[in-house]
Amino acid sequence: MLKELIKIKGTRNGLVFYFNTRDADFEEIKNTLIEKFQSANGFFANARFIISPDNDLNSEEIKIIENICCEYGLVKSANRVVKLDRITDRVNTQTAVSADNKTEYFMAEKDAVLLTRNIRSGQKIYVKGNAVILGDVNPGAEIAATGSIIVMGTMRGVAHAGSYGDDTAYVMAFRLRPTQIWIADKVCRAPESQFTVDYPEVAKIVDNQIILEPYQSSKRRVVNL
């Protein structure tokens, strides 16, 4: 069976195009794309689009593809491509553990993936859905989820909530001391000062900015479930 060369996914930021450059060359992909647009009868017109960075296309080839898209009435999205968009394909193929044995991919069956261990330096966790960690996330570790991230312990590493662009996602931890927090396409890093607090906090986007606030269970909008 011929592998799917082009995948199109709808996200908040518009359509994301994924190109399978492993199983086909550029010409083939280009022709398939044109075919797809022609058979769609203008269905894609006026839609915003992004090209996923998970491919081997060079900048010239990307330009050609963008031009084709524009020809068929699509509008190039001004949004920066979210860094972790590239995981989509791999998560969908349901590979639980990758070859290098350090980066692990999980897919939530219903709402969340529960991990009961410490995530240590050098380990990467990708979750499709929400992630709940019973343990610490140490500096040098990275955790990304398409939904929200909850750490029942100390969050010291890098967290990326809403990695597909969901800016209502949040990061919550008993002790929130991350090196970086990403929510959707926003990023913020820890302040240089040694100021730390000793209560649970939530990081979320308010007015296009990531803010940290004390976690209060009574505020349902904070938990957003």
Partner: peptide, 13 residues
């Protein structure tokens, strides 16, 4: 300590 953390992770896996 950072490297030790990495090592502990590798040992566990």
């Amino acid at each position: 300590v950072r490297d030790a953390d990495r090592i502990v992770g590798l040992l566990e896996s």
